[in-house]
Design a protein around this nucleic acid. Sequence first.
DNA 1: TTGTATTTGCAACTGAGTTGCATTATAATA
DNA 2: TATTATAATGCAACTCAGTTGCAAATACAA
Lengths: 140, 140
Amino acid sequence: MPKSSIIFDLLKSKGFRLTRARKTLIRIFVCSKNPLAAADLNSRLEKMDVSVNKTTIYREIDFLKGQRIIRELQFGDGKRRYEIWPDNHHHHIVCINCDYIECVELDGCLEDEEKKILRENNFKTIKHSLEFQGLCAKCQ
Amino acid sequence: MPKSSIIFDLLKSKGFRLTRARKTLIRIFVCSKNPLAAADLNSRLEKMDVSVNKTTIYREIDFLKGQRIIRELQFGDGKRRYEIWPDNHHHHIVCINCDYIECVELDGCLEDEEKKILRENNFKTIKHSLEFQGLCAKCQ
DNA sequence: TTGTATTTGCAACTGAGTTGCATTATAATA
DNA sequence: TATTATAATGCAACTCAGTTGCAAATACAA
């Protein structure tokens, strides 16, 4: 069973409706290799002949975020980007020249650091955001 | 000699002018314990009776950033924040409840990871942005 | 097929940040 | 001190991401 169908069933079982926009957005996220901003979603929807108002796109983003189907990322260009909720904990590296993005998996990611923060800063760490910026193979 | 004066001399020696706005903004950054957004700068300037147009604030931010006197940070709320260029490499932890911010210093920060990225992703890493979110002592 | 709560579209808005251009003011020099 | 070049500023109008209130449409259970 493709991943989209699993998500459809999950949402249906929770009593949410499967509208054309919602299903298409979920398919877009499942298939996309890169995190997508609201404007990216809009142009992909248009290409797929599913016309959706931008308000709906933002509301659907909130909905999918709330359902933990997607998660939000920030690459420092002032746009919020989203990707399907990952199975594996990972981060990203963005090429500062051509915006090409790759996933990066780190070993034993920041667990010790979060313990240190609890000890030294008295903060209970919930999550962290870590993105790398650099030059991809082509742009070096 | 206070830190602001050192920066004033540096800029002067490079041939830049020391205007009221520029000097006041540098003083604000030097004194501030927290990273500041453009709107924060505006309200602090008003309190100090130095009225400055918002265009000037944004241009001055660009200037100070270009001179490596301040650096930009993102905490994921859609605003860009700035702090005086740090002597020590550090990150931040933000309380998701009350927005209180503390600095966090990590040991041997991410050097091994950046080497790994060069090996495995073929990216030459220039920099990284890492921010923690959690609950501060009061909000736990 | 119907009832209704969920979802959507629209239009108008907010708030961060940008641009072009005319004006002002810093600071080096005469 | 007065002159001058140009760095810095103000203003108004703009872009672009994202939000809000409300009326209309639609998914889907019964």
